[in-house]
Amino acid sequence: MIYFYDGTQTSFLTAFLLAYGDADAVLTSGSMQLALGEETRFVKADPARAKKAEKRLLALDAGCMEDLSTLLRSGDCDRDMVAMNYMRRIAEQGGPVRNMLADDAVLAAVECMRRVSFEVHRFHGFLRFMESESGALYAPISPDNDIADLLLPHFRKRLPAYPFVIHDVRRKKAAVYDGVNTFVAPLERAEVVLSADETAWQALWKNYYRSVNIPSRERLKQMRGYMPVRYWKFMPEFRGE
């Protein structure tokens, strides 16, 4: 049986409860090619059932809901099954499994979570704000995983005086700090009027970037290893004159 769900945590937990007894269950929030005669079921989020599943799982592993939330943010196409197998292992084991690193299901989940949290760390560094006319900051990003809102606490602590918008252009959503509160909102396109000095600061940064390099020690492979090209798109130092 294939269980389709909408990608939310509530709906995942509802589906998990339904699919738990079915050893051949496939859980997915994407689209997939169906085999002939394959049975399918579209699972609607049921908060009461989800709560029940959550309560049971939390009794076994107090940290498992955070793990689940991280797993469901992953951009990997197999994340639903990875999450399913991981939660199933917790249920079977009757306790936390995250340190059972020689277990396939656990290993897949741990690696998947590591990719998500590593990308959060990367964006703490690679995100670039531009200053708008009003003084608010705007940063477009296009991350592999759904992490825009996970970036909020870091930048809020750091820049409390500046309202900012972190725009995930791929998922068309924005993580916003309005100077008081943080929230997430859908955002298709943003029109940003830059402040008078913004272009000059970007030029100065490009100038710095060029000056600090040691050309006789070129190591492009190492550079791309640390900072894959897909992250360059919104960084001023890689945009032409």
């Binding site: 560094g125 970037y209 600090v212 390099n213 040691i214 050309p215 190591r219 130092e237």
Partner: peptide
Amino acid sequence: CCHSFTPDGRCIS
């Protein structure tokens, strides 16, 4: 935290 990397493979923090 590294904010960028230059073509010599070093990080800008």
